[in-house]
């Protein structure tokens, strides 16, 4: 589904990713772990197509297409979803309006008609309930005044509504208490299917207790230095990155 080859990415002229290789098959869940500054967030932003993340070499193929040729909104249209480490506050745009605009934009990209208001409302309420989100929050401006946990939950509601083919979740577990973590994990697990895949970017092994990955990779200084099964996460937790890398 996703094939990253020799990816080099620079931010502000500084090279952060230095030849990263990764391949993700449909139906699998991958976790990338690594210390601060290893390039975890850079990878997620580069995949989503953020402006200031300059790809200087390498290629990314997604569902047979050159992902790097696509604009960020086209990548989303193709089924890529980035769960933000720091979800952005947007005063003046209600969460509901944001979700509707987003879903319909993606549907239009795929040649589908806009979803009618009644069906949409039912869908959002159902997804929000499944993720324990208070329906009142849907009326509030996107992430404005939300706690850290509520923001992450909101990311999960967006993901549930958009039903991405590939979800890249950048430290979705950070700042969550154990109850919220379980809810978020349920949200991710609910989307697991043979057609979909997920890439979890995380600092800690904690999330992986609830979303059990098929593969774990260690990112260190801009490259994947080690890959393994779910037991690698435990080893990292125990011995630290330096020993494993």
């Amino acid at each position: 589904m996703l094939k990253i080859e020799n990816l080099h990415v620079a931010v502000g002229g500084k090279e952060i990713l230095k030849g990263l290789d990764l391949e993700i098959e449909a139906g699998s869940v991958h976790a990338i772990m690594g210390p601060n500054g290893a390039g975890k967030s850079t990878l997620s932003y580069a995949l989503a197509g953020r402006d200031s993340y300059e790809v200087t070499a390498g290629s990314v193929t997604y569902l047979g297409k050159d992902l790097l040729e696509l604009d960020p909104h086209e990548r989303a249209g193709e089924g890529l979803f980035l769960g933000f480490q720091y979800p952005v506050e947007i005063p003046g745009v209600s969460t509901m309006n944001f979700l509707r605009t987003s879903l319909n934009a993606v549907r239009r990209y795929r040649g589908l008609e806009d979803m009618d208001a009644v069906t949409f409302l039912r869908l959002v309420k159902e997804k929000a309930a499944a993720l324990d989100m208070n329906p009142d929050m849907l009326k509030r401006a996107v992430n404005v005044g939300f706690s850290g946990g509520e923001k992450k939950r909101n990311e999960m509601v967006q993901m549930a509504v958009l039903e991405p083919t590939l979800a890249v979740l950048d430290e979705t577990d950070s700042g969550l208490d154990i109850d919220a973590l379980k809810v978020v994990a349920d949200g991710i697990n609910a989307l697991r299917s043979p057609e979909r895949a997920a890439l979890l970017i995380t600092h800690y092994q904690r999330l992986l207790d609830y979303v059990v990955p098929d593969f774990v990779h260690v990112l260190f200084d801009g490259k994947i230095v080690k890959s393994g099964g779910k037991e690698l996460a435990l080893e990292l937790e125990e011995k630290g990155y330096a020993a494993v890398a």
């Binding site: 909104h73 249209g77 979800p87 958009l162």
Partner: peptide, 16 residues
Amino acid sequence: KHALFYLKSRGIAPDE
């Protein structure tokens, strides 16, 4: 810019 990217990452075209 952050908000713009956030919206684009959700499939919303730049003009919209």
